[in-house]
């Protein structure tokens, strides 16, 4: 038993030593550690304000890409899911098209560039799709006609590790079921 404890102790010391060697944690980061207050938040039960539940989807729905300028991709900033001002005209044209085609339903795909971690990108992609959906609901579209899916970083449209490829891959994509 003593030996095991001793091993553990030495092990921890080795880790701390390795850490100091590796120079992990710049001075700036240490400052940040000190200045941030501990954060304890009580989550309030119940659906949050502004949540718009997704309606159950029919298994028969097949969403296809319409080769129309109406359904241009919208894009996002790195690690963000806020709808950008420059994509508002696209979302307005999608909303207008949905008003003219009252039986159509839209699947909003959320995608990410390769730079984040795989798991977080999956969550981020969903948040991007949900943000676009929320915007369309704000434009008066029935939320039951809008559903979402995240592909995270699984389906890039542009290959390569360039800023141009990344910005194309951070996107919301619209597919339509009639």
């Amino acid at each position: 038993m003593k030996k095991v404890l001793a091993l553990l102790l030495v092990g921890s010391m080795a880790v701390v030593f390795a850490l100091s060697l590796s120079g992990c944690g710049s001075k700036e980061e240490v400052m940040e550690d000190i200045t941030i207050e501990p954060e304890v938040v009580e989550d309030i039960e119940g659906v949050a304000d502004g949540d718009i539940p997704l309606d159950p989807r029919s298994d028969d729905d097949i969403y296809i890409d319409l080769l129309s300028k109406v359904f241009a991709d919208i894009n996002f900033e790195f690690d963000q899911y806020r709808v950008l001002d420059r994509d508002v005209p696209t979302l307005e044209s999608v909303a207008a098209w949905l008003r003219e085609n009252p039986d159509a339903r839209v699947l909003i795909e959320g995608h990410c560039d390769e730079r984040g971690t795989n798991e977080y990108n999956m969550a981020l992609g969903e948040q991007r799709a949900l943000a676009a959906r929320r915007y369309l609901v704000g434009l008066g579209i029935d939320s039951g006609r809008l559903t979402t899916i995240s592909y995270g970083e699984e389906r890039p449209v542009a290959l390569g590790s360039t800023e141009d490829a990344w910005s194309q891959n951070r996107r919301g994509h619209f597919a339509v079921a009639m």
């Binding site: 539940p53 969903e126 948040q127």
Partner: peptide
Amino acid sequence: SLSRDGNT
């Protein structure tokens, strides 16, 4: 994680 309530 689910997003069925409209958020992840």
